[in-house]
Computed example of a mutant assay.
Amino acid sequence: MENASEPVRFETKIAVVLRDDLQTWQRLNMTAFLVSGIGRKVPEVIGEPYSDADDTEYLPMFRQPVLVFEAGKEALVTAHQRAVTRGVPLSVFTSDLFTTNNDRDNRAAVRAVHRDNLDLVGMAVYGPRNAVDKIIKGARMHP
């Protein structure tokens, strides 16, 4: 039985890594896009719907925190390689996606470039806490 006073500790981690040379609007936009696919790929990360005291219903959200990190370009590329090697659920955002404005064009922009040539500006990963920690090693918490 779950004790409401004990802290909740998750065995998994959701982490977003953003390149450290981006504008604020780019970081915010990217974070939203990057995490949006995790709930579809791994539906158990989504909690129950919310409601307030007036019974107004709200959408469910992740059941655990999303940790946001930043890293230089090389560290981001390394993290991407680690995530691909480990086969964890992964989303990517490339610099080309700042010039598109719809899902079809976003997917086409990523599809046009080989994995090792992607100009990564962000990524999100989900997996066992220890695996994600190893993947994002070298990144620092976003200020």
Results as ranks from 00 to 15, higher is better:
95 S>E: 06
73 K>T: 11
69 F>P: 08
120 L>P: 11
111 R>E: 12
82 R>Q: 09
101 N>V: 05
88 V>G: 00
74 E>N: 14
111 R>D: 12
52 D>Y: 03
102 N>E: 12
122 G>L: 10
107 R>I: 15
98 F>R: 05
62 F>G: 01
112 A>V: 12
105 D>C: 04
98 F>S: 08
94 T>I: 14
95 S>G: 10
112 A>L: 09
74 E>L: 05
78 T>D: 10
113 V>C: 03
56 T>M: 01
109 A>P: 03
94 T>N: 10
64 Q>C: 03
103 D>A: 13
75 A>V: 12
103 D>V: 13
100 T>Y: 05
87 G>M: 04
83 A>K: 09
120 L>M: 13
55 D>R: 08
69 F>W: 02
87 G>A: 07
51 S>F: 15
51 S>Y: 10
120 L>R: 10
116 D>V: 13
65 P>N: 14
99 T>Q: 12
114 H>R: 14
60 P>Y: 09
86 R>T: 13
115 R>W: 05
57 E>W: 01
125 V>E: 07
69 F>N: 10
59 L>W: 01
84 V>D: 11
84 V>Y: 09
104 R>W: 04
73 K>W: 11
71 A>Q: 01
58 Y>A: 01
81 Q>C: 08
93 F>E: 03
76 L>R: 02
84 V>I: 15
101 N>A: 04
81 Q>I: 00
78 T>F: 03
87 G>Q: 03
62 F>E: 01
105 D>M: 04
71 A>R: 00
108 A>P: 06
68 V>W: 00
121 V>S: 10
92 V>N: 09
103 D>C: 03
63 R>W: 00
101 N>S: 15
76 L>D: 09
90 L>E: 02
119 D>F: 02
59 L>Y: 08
100 T>R: 08
85 T>V: 12
83 A>M: 05
97 L>C: 07
106 N>K: 00
113 V>E: 06
72 G>Y: 07
79 A>D: 04
89 P>Y: 07
51 S>M: 13
91 S>N: 15
104 R>N: 04
105 D>T: 02
111 R>M: 05
98 F>K: 02
77 V>I: 10
83 A>F: 11
75 A>D: 14
74 E>Y: 05
56 T>A: 01
85 T>S: 12
114 H>T: 14
107 R>E: 14
62 F>R: 00
53 A>C: 12
120 L>V: 13
69 F>Q: 07
85 T>R: 04
116 D>I: 06
90 L>C: 06
124 A>N: 06
98 F>V: 03
120 L>K: 06
73 K>Q: 15
93 F>A: 12
123 M>H: 07
59 L>D: 15
61 M>K: 02
109 A>C: 06
93 F>T: 04
88 V>F: 03
74 E>A: 15
127 G>M: 02
91 S>K: 00
98 F>M: 09
103 D>M: 07
58 Y>D: 07
111 R>T: 01
82 R>H: 15
111 R>N: 14
94 T>F: 10
54 D>H: 08
116 D>P: 11
91 S>L: 10
57 E>C: 06
76 L>V: 07
120 L>C: 13
107 R>A: 15
82 R>W: 04
98 F>Q: 07
75 A>M: 08
69 F>T: 05
64 Q>G: 00
78 T>Q: 12
71 A>C: 02
125 V>F: 08
79 A>G: 00
82 R>D: 03
97 L>W: 01
127 G>Q: 02
120 L>G: 10
110 V>K: 12
101 N>W: 12
85 T>N: 12
